[in-house]
């Protein structure tokens, strides 16, 4: 019994350690005071307004959202195609391909980032937005692949075979049967890809061309100069986005799959 009490205490302390800083950031983002310190002098949205009026941040948001959306679309498209190939067909080198596609989540991100950069140097190409996008796609693809593959394995071949026996060709069968049944996973994969891309800092630092900032790199840049309360507000926005989006996505995905079972 004693042991369990200790474990419980330990767990509580652990979570406090993990989440307290986040809670402090969120709390302080509503503090009207110039200095991000306790005690709070009231509740205000002034730092959020300041955020809105800060061109650099708005620009960073625009870059992040565009990058995230493109990453999501490209990653999901490739992820779905690769999953279909890996789950539905047999071909030589399948194991190797799976390993290659999943590898980016097993390799430390810094290593991946540097590797891609070295590769670029070898090709004698400058850093560019497409490179950043490419990096994000490589990095998010495994997540999409895992989600979509798991769902695809669960979709029995029967459905596709029934459709084909009724006269639908392979492409029609994909769009009328497989794709709709796969929709929840595709949706979830897209959200994953978007969130991961939106949140990413390590790879982005290495890959982004000069002058372009995403929200995380922007925060990082701001932190180097001063600790403005604006950063607290920005952090709060990021937390809401990266937590709420997947939750919302999961709820929608659950709703969708309930209609398809």
């Amino acid at each position: 019994m004693k042991g369990w009490h200790l474990i419980r205490l330990y767990t509580i302390l652990f979570y406090l350690f993990m989440f307290l800083p986040i809670a402090v950031v969120v709390l302080l983002s509503f503090n009207p005071s110039e200095f991000g310190t306790f005690p709070m002098t009231g509740v205000s949205f002034r730092w959020f307004v300041a955020l809105w009026n800060n061109d650099a941040i708005v620009r960073a948001f625009r870059v992040s959202i565009l990058l995230g959306a493109m990453t999501a679309v490209i990653s999901t498209t490739f992820g779905v195609m690769a999953s279909l190939a890996l789950v539905r067909y047999d071909f030589p080198g399948k194991g190797l391909l799976t390993t290659l596609l999943i590898a980016p989540i097993l390799i430390p991100e810094v290593v991946l980032a540097v590797a891609l950069l070295l590769f670029l140097r070898w090709l004698d190409m400058p850093k560019s937005l497409p490179l950043l996008l490419f990096g994000h796609v490589i990095f998010t693809l495994p997540f999409v692949l895992l989600v979509v593959q798991a769902r695809l394995v669960g979709i029995r071949r029967d459905y596709e075979e029934a459709a084909m026996s009724l006269g639908a060709g392979p492409i029609e069968t994909f769009f009328k049967i497989t794709f709709p049944l796969l929709m929840p996973a595709i949706f979830a994969g897209m959200l994953f890809a978007f969130t991961i891309s939106f949140d990413d800092i390590t790879g982005t630092m290495f890959w982004k061309p000069g002058g372009v900032e995403t929200v995380p790199t922007q925060i990082y840049a701001m932190l180097r100069n001063s600790i403005s309360p604006e950063i607290n507000a920005l952090g709060t926005v990021m937390i809401v986005l990266t937590v709420a989006l997947p939750l919302l996505g999961m709820a929608i995905a659950r709703q969708m799959s309930a209609n398809r079972k």
Partner: peptide, 20 residues
């Protein structure tokens, strides 16, 4: 001739009705 051009009726053990 591929399956979709054979004009056959197929019934499976697990029905395989399109759930959506």
């Amino acid at each position: 001739i591929p399956i979709h051009k054979r004009n056959l009726g197929l019934v499976f053990q697990n029905y395989a009705l399109f759930p959506h």
